[in-house]
Design a binder for these strands. Structure first.
Lengths: 353, 353
DNA sequence: TCCTTTATGCAAGGACATTTCATAAAGAAT
DNA sequence: ATTCTTTATGAAATGTCCTTGCATAAAGGA
């Protein structure tokens, strides 16, 4: 699936590296790029850029558009223009739960093109099967008009502990899936890379990429509700933990009593939350803390209570915010996970210094 | 200081990359390597290896030894033999405290060649100045017989919070150094890269590299004593935190009361420690927990108490051990930090897939 | 002394990248 | 309409680096 690089002993490595650089330049650029523009941006010589563009166009990664000579101050011979074909394949983000299966279809840049949801009443968790998941994913793809498109990667949020390989280790809400290799089964049927991750962790990833803590290097995200859990971003990357169980702080007594919060007690709740988080904040020293949950007009009071408590215990109190992401956070995180994989595989990581 | 790589548009990149591969092969190999052996190991063609070896020898990174034809089953023309000149420069590890300044001098592989200690009674912390530090480091280098050698990097453990750039942010034990840019001042005088890090964090690094949790991907290390603090290894790397204050869990009430533990109360102490660590273990899901401190024959009782408490709260209880590293842990961590920098700069990171 | 084995020396050939000079296509000026 | 200026493309020459393949060197064993 991933695109391999030749070894350093093969001169073809240079061509591959340059092709990547150029593809990445087009990927990163919102507007169109001209040949001469790429030469200037990358510092690579024109003949090389030209050859790479030809190869990339042949492989359908990019396409050449007709030259544009319109516009006022445009002097000289019109430049050849190119664009990244972000519709070349798709990414899938998936939120698996007992109340809904939510599927997001995105282009390779991560822009969501279509959303599809299948709702359940939550009383029959055994409805959630590999077959049902496949059915809804395929329905979503068909609705989006991408039947037959290549799926570059799929990121799935699952309510439970999942190993790095994608095997369900344990789940309180859907115990019948324990032991199932979700990643392998979905991967085989959909013929793509499937990444399965704890749902709270995926929501954390979404928070980091497009939410309140956008681009902070290290973030603690706390999900409140029936059960409290958390997720950690460390150095810009999601922390999975040794068993894939990082973030499961719901078992803590200090936080457990606060289940099912009443809005009247929001200050008390905030105090408990702050005290519970203090250990984590002191240990990790994050840049930001984000709280996910429904607080309506009590938001300010909650934040104040949490901040006060953190101030009491911590050396450095991070920024504390309430999440603005809604019910689509987990699936959005799935799209990000898939997009990360796509960029790693296809565009390559930054060059090792 | 660091060795830069040409851009991918320069064919010389290949040569640099191959030179690195070959240098790393010699660095990683304990015994001597022959030319033909390197060819087989790396897969690079012989003429290329030959050219790279010649360049590396010219730059004094490696040296050629006389061919060795002795030995029983050694048939054929004797191979040319090469070795990495691990004495080409040195690494320095430093432990700065109010009771001692400990300096470790190591070769570029991280093997400690010499230790030097300057003891203080702890009552006059203002003794610890940049000038005094320099004096002891220079004394250590001279004693080790490496006067004039190039220092590739120095890693310093400091009792306080230090920014990533090396500026002392706060320190309870040596408050007079607050605001001092330790890294910059030492770097200028010693003409080398200086990395300053919290001392507990450096001890954590040492624990990860040569201690009880050797090579675990994620580790929580707890330092007990007058003041409790911790360090985290995440994905094999030390967690600094946004302000460089990661691990300062000593401010927690649940842990604070346990200061100055009496050995009689070791079970009670272990329970408090386990309860305090539970939040961290649940959040991070580490592979191992290591406890540093003096417990003598009470060790087993302490471990049992901590484990019991962790079992009560956690989903997955990590392995819990007591540290075997002694008073030299911080300086050892400094050597590792310096060694990491050396390997990154000189040998390069693994090639980005 | 000759054969086998292991290793080095050297030349030929191919892939890439860069620089340089010539040509093409547009707007602006005469 | 023609010419000039600007911007961009086309194509050839040159050099670096790597690999393959053949010849040579240096050891032990028969």
């Amino acid at each position: 699936m991933s695109i391999k690089l030749p070894s350093p002993s093969d001169p073809a490595l240079l061509r591959s590296l340059n092709r990547r650089t150029i593809l990445r330049t087009l990927f990163d650029s919102d507007s169109l790029e001209t040949l001469a523009g790429i030469v200037k941006k990358t510092g690579v010589s024109r003949p090389t850029v030209e050859a790479s563009l030809a190869e990339l166009a042949e492989q359908k990664w990019i396409e050449e558009l007709s030259p544009d000579s319109s516009g006022p101050g445009r002097l000289g011979r019109p430049a050849r223009r190119f664009r990244f074909r972000n519709e070349f394949g798709i990414l899938v983000g998936l939120d698996l739960g007992i109340h809904k299966i939510l599927v997001k279809i995105a282009d390779t840049r991560g822009t969501v093109l279509h959303e599809h949801v299948y709702r359940m009443d939550g009383t029959s968790p055994e409805q959630l099967t590999v077959g049902k998941i496949l059915e809804e994913v395929r329905a979503a793809i068909n609705e989006s008009g991408h039947r037959g498109s290549r799926i570059w990667a799929m990121g799935c949020g699952f309510p439970g502990v999942v190993t790095a390989a994608g095997v369900v280790q344990r789940s309180v809400v859907v115990p019948h899936l324990t032991g199932v290799n979700l990643a392998a089964e979905l991967s085989e049927q959909l013929n793509t890379v499937v990444l399965v991750e704890n749902d709270a962790n995926l929501a954390t990833l979404a928070e980091h990429r497009e939410g309140a803590s956008h681009d902070a290097r290290s973030v603690v995200v706390v999900k409140t509700g029936r059960r409290i859990s958390s997720g950690l971003i460390i150095n810009g990357a999601l922390l999975r933990g040794h068993h894939g169980a990082a973030g499961e702080i719901g078992a803590l007594p200090i936080l457990r009593w606060a289940e099912a919060p009443k809005l009247k007690d929001v200050v008390e709740y905030g105090q408990a939350l702050g005290a519970g988080l203090a250990a984590l904040v002191l240990a990790v020293d994050p840049e930001a803390v984000v709280i996910q949950g429904e607080f309506k007009d009590q938001e300010a009071a909650l934040l104040a209570a949490v901040r006060t408590e953190l101030d009491r215990f911590c050396i450095y109190t991070p920024s504390v915010q309430v999440s603005k992401l809604g019910a689509g956070a987990v699936a959005a995180g799935g799209v990000h996970l898939a997009g990360d994989r796509f960029r790693t595989d296809v565009l390559g990581l930054s060059f090792a210094q």
